[in-house]
């Protein structure tokens, strides 16, 4: 359903959309029921000639049922939401699958700096490729990213991945993604970080294996020297 509205380009995007859909359906159901009941009661007990209003204490059992029964049903729905949320949280944030590649992502006012391992697939070696605002990854590979900030709070957000992670000065936070479709998608900062926050945009370029290898061989030597 969400796929039609916004592309899902990571392995966990569907899980997150499913959770949002679950919450929207359950909360939406109770919203419609509550509003329907609300307006029906307004209409049912509307002003009529010679009818006085009643004072209701809410202590009578037949009245309390109007609160307790929906309350219990909402709590049952909450259980489903909590189970779904914990499962997605564990899969996306707690459990890190083994990486094929590790990259480094640094946020700064007001750009993203990316350190890609070169052809040796090892970070902090001579063939690393540094870029600003453009991240290059290969489709169908699992990446770990080491996220940090050079100055203030930022948030590494890739809407097509349904990925958001705070970048906190002084901390290195590890996250992961597994891109499932090629293309170029937005990277944005999702944490107000100063006057240039609105222009802190980057791009993730998801390439097939051949294109990525070609990009790597073209850039490994040029940026390593800088």
């Amino acid at each position: 359903m969400f796929e039609r509205l916004a592309i899902q380009a990571s392995s966990f995007a569907g899980d997150i959309d499913g959770l949002i859909l679950l919450i929207a359906v359950l909360v939406g159901f109770w919203f419609i029921v509550a509003e329907g009941m609300f307006f029906w009661l307004i209409w049912r007990f509307r002003e009529r000639p010679d009818q006085k209003s009643q004072y209701i204490t809410g202590k009578e059992k037949h009245l309390k049922r109007w609160v307790t029964i929906p309350h219990a049903l909402v709590l049952v729905c909450d259980v489903f939401i909590i189970i779904g949320a914990v499962r997605v949280w564990y899969d996306v944030k707690q459990h890190l699958p083994e990486p094929d590649t590790v990259i480094r992502v640094e946020g700064q006012q007001w750009a993203w700096v990316f350190q890609h391992p070169g052809p040796d697939n090892e970070l902090d070696t001579g063939d690393d490729i540094w870029t600003t605002d453009d991240l290059y990854v290969e489709v169908d590979r699992t990446y770990h990213f080491r996220l940090s900030s050079r100055d203030v709070l930022h948030n590494f957000s890739v809407p097509a991945f349904r990925l958001k992670q705070d970048a906190v000065p002084g901390r290195t936070i590890t996250g992961w993604f597994h891109a499932t479709s090629t293309g170029t998608y937005d990277i944005q900062c999702a944490e107000i970080c100063g006057i240039g926050h609105g222009v802190m945009a980057g791009r993730i370029n998801i390439q097939d294996a051949e294109t990525h290898a070609s990009w790597m061989s073209e850039n490994a030597t040029t940026t390593a020297a800088q």
Binding site: Q109, T132, V199
Partner: peptide, 22 residues
């Protein structure tokens, strides 16, 4: 155009580049 402030280590230059793009 990223001809200045484009180096990943140039933190100050990158900041200015973003603002110039505004």
């Amino acid at each position: 155009n990223g001809w200045r402030g484009g180096h990943p280590m140039d933190t100050v230059g990158i900041r200015m580049r973003s603002m110039a793009n505004a």
